[in-house]
Amino acid sequence: MKVARILFFLVGSIFIVASLPISSGIMLELYTIKNISDKYTITSINGGDDFTDSTIYSFRGNIIEIEEELKESVIYKDLFDNYIGIADVTLKINGKEIETLKDHPIRTGYYSGLSRYFGEVAFLLLGDKKNNDTQFVVLLKKTKEFLKAKPNGDLEGWVPIEELDYTMITLDSEGNIGNTSFNLTERDALQTHLLNEGNVVPHTIGYHNQYMSGYLSLLFPIAFPFGTLLIGIILLLVGFLIKRKKKLVS
């Protein structure tokens, strides 16, 4: 009986120790996802596959536009066989220059409108549910990436996550302009959501970790870590019951 009790405690503890950090990280992600969705509505104007052909957007009487000065029409093909050129990309609001991306990679060829700046510039609408107000948001990826594949299949031109810098321009309903710069490693929860919705990050990023950003299945996170965590708790409870039963018998 003593050996069985020790075995239950040992195996249960191993299961809990292995599962608890990841399961708590997932719960933190789920809490933040719910918190963001309860507070905001976010609409991407140029997200996904539904690209607009225009680079001009009107928001409550304000004109937001992207002005392009093409330097080189084609310098290489990217991983998806898109032609990549070089241009100065300028954001203007009501005719005033706000930010310029100098010598920045853009998609050329048959692309037009905002789709030329996919991955570099994003237009979004940010709705505040509490205040019943909406802001126009422009995300600019300040760091240049010239990502392409070598003949042997290796990738070159990528930039480490900690070197990716962004600028977030906000325009509220009264025409006030905000300007915030941040590094990808220093983003907050709202910035994380905007970056994902705007498709200006190399891959989907989590709020605190990457546990919920990959492919989810019955194996992860159902079987592990939540299944193993539950089994660990059950094994510990069985160990306690065996110990309690032994005391009652004696």
Rank of each mutant, 00 (worst) to 15 (best):
G175C: 06
S37Y: 09
V249K: 12
I6V: 12
L30F: 12
V17I: 14
L171D: 04
I22E: 08
L235N: 05
I231F: 06
F51M: 13
D165N: 15
S44K: 07
T228L: 00
E162V: 13
I161V: 15
I242Y: 03
V137I: 13
G61Q: 02
L194N: 00
Y110N: 12
S73V: 10
I98V: 09
K243C: 07
E69N: 13
E186T: 08
I16R: 00
P221C: 00
S217E: 08
L237A: 13
E163H: 10
G61E: 06
L237Y: 10
G206L: 02
I16S: 03
Y31M: 11
N82A: 01
G127E: 08
T90L: 07
E145T: 01
F9H: 09
L79R: 14
L164C: 03
R116H: 02
I205R: 02
L155S: 14
I63Y: 10
L147D: 10
L230S: 09
F224L: 01
N82T: 08
D49E: 15
L28R: 15
L219S: 08
R244D: 13
Y83K: 14
M27G: 14
K71H: 09
K243V: 06
K96H: 15
G47P: 04
V3E: 13
I56N: 06
K150R: 14
N94R: 05
S181E: 15
F240E: 15
T55I: 06
K130H: 11
Y111P: 06
I64P: 02
F220C: 00
N94Q: 04
S37P: 08
A189C: 11
P160Q: 04
Y166I: 01
L30N: 13
T143L: 02
M212T: 05
V74G: 03
K2F: 08
Y117K: 01
